[in-house]
């Protein structure tokens, strides 16, 4: 029992004897003063709407009249046996689990190259950042054009290696790969910036010490850069994964408001949007959002747990 209690108190971040100290409570007071503006804003505009939609998820909700019939967890039960939702879930997981590491590897590679003394370094950095600041509508419109099966540039180029017949936007098997390519392109710059900032944060003297020991470039990377970058890597991983699971706008603009050929790019948030705003079934839609939350929460928790093994704070 006491073991359990210990575990619980560890979980909420304090040990029993701390609670008896006045200085701890003083610090707690000031911490909450510091947190007040954040908590006020998030409580009002994030937490409250989310709690409210939990209530809605337990109803057969008519959004137009803002009333509903209480049906308990029926929406959840129905979702779990809805093949459309199952497919959306699979597409989302597929997208998130491929695009996140892929983007991270490329971004880290670019960030390391950019972290040297180079001419025109500023221009390079800006170039990689550009896709991220390009409005989604414009970026996607260009992609639709570039990836057109018959007259798009990509197939024109792929034609030289005999792959010019891929029907990017019309074949179900290529929908998620296309979404991943778009995602990598769009979010690369975002991650490059984060990695660059992380690299800058590694003190020079670590490198100097390693060099004195006669380490070569690869060893420096393996034994200095990578371990000291782990807090950044961890941060990028968590943020990008949460973002990837919420993939929506890309789908919406790439396939003009539909979920791709045979709904092959249907993601959970797209599902939420269509059920909510097109079918007016907000109870059902809200339940889907809660299931998404549960999945991402569990994955994040696992990641945090694992992070203790590989993340090193200096």
């Amino acid at each position: 029992m006491s073991k359990l209690l210990n575990k619980f108190s560890g979980l909420i971040g304090y040990e029993g004897r701390k609670l008896k100290k006045l200085s701890f409570w003083k610090e707690t007071f000031w911490a909450y003063v510091y947190l007040l503006p954040t908590l006020a804003v998030l409580g009002t505009f994030s937490l409250w709407p989310i709690i409210r939609s939990f209530k809605i998820s337990l109803y057969d909700w008519n959004v137009l009249r803002n009333t509903g019939t209480f049906i308990g967890f029926r929406n959840y039960a129905e979702l779990l046996s809805d093949p459309e939702f199952g497919a959306a879930l699979w597409h989302t997981v597929y997208y998130a689990l491929v695009s996140t590491p892929l983007t991270m590897i490329i971004a880290l590679f670019i960030a390391i190259l950019l972290n040297q003394k180079l001419r025109m370094r500023g221009w390079f950095r800006t170039a990689f950042f550009l896709p991220w600041i390009t409005p989604m509508v414009a970026g996607a419109s260009v992609f639709v054009w570039l990836f057109n099966a018959d007259y798009g540039l990509i197939n024109h180029l792929l034609g030289f290696v005999g792959l010019g017949n891929l029907r990017w936007l019309n074949s179900p098997a290529l929908a998620i790969p296309l979404l991943i390519i778009f995602g990598v392109w769009k979010f690369l710059g975002f991650q490059v910036v984060l990695f660059l900032a992380g690299l800058q944060n590694i003190p020079e003297h670590y490198y100097e010490a390693a060099k004195v020991d006669g380490a070569n470039r690869l060893q420096l990377f393996r034994h200095v850069t990578l371990p000291l970058l782990t807090p950044t890597t961890f941060f990028v991983l968590i943020i990008s994964m949460i973002g990837a699971f919420k993939v929506f706008t890309q789908v919406y603009v790439l396939w003009a408001g539909t979920a791709g050929p045979l709904d092959s790019a249907q993601t959970i948030v797209m599902f939420f949007f269509q059920k909510g705003f097109n079918n007016f079934e907000f109870g059902y839609a809200s339940a889907a959002a809660y299931i998404l939350f549960l999945i991402v929460f569990v994955l994040t928790a696992i990641n945090m747990r694992l992070s203790r093994k590989w993340v090193h704070y200096q």
Binding site: F45, S46, P49, V63, I242, F245, K246, S286, L292
Partner: peptide, 13 residues
């Protein structure tokens, strides 16, 4: 956890 909810959920409330 708050980050894990889609922003679209917050629009109507």
């Amino acid at each position: 956890g708050l980050m894990m909810f889609p922003g679209q959920l917050r629009l109507i409330p």
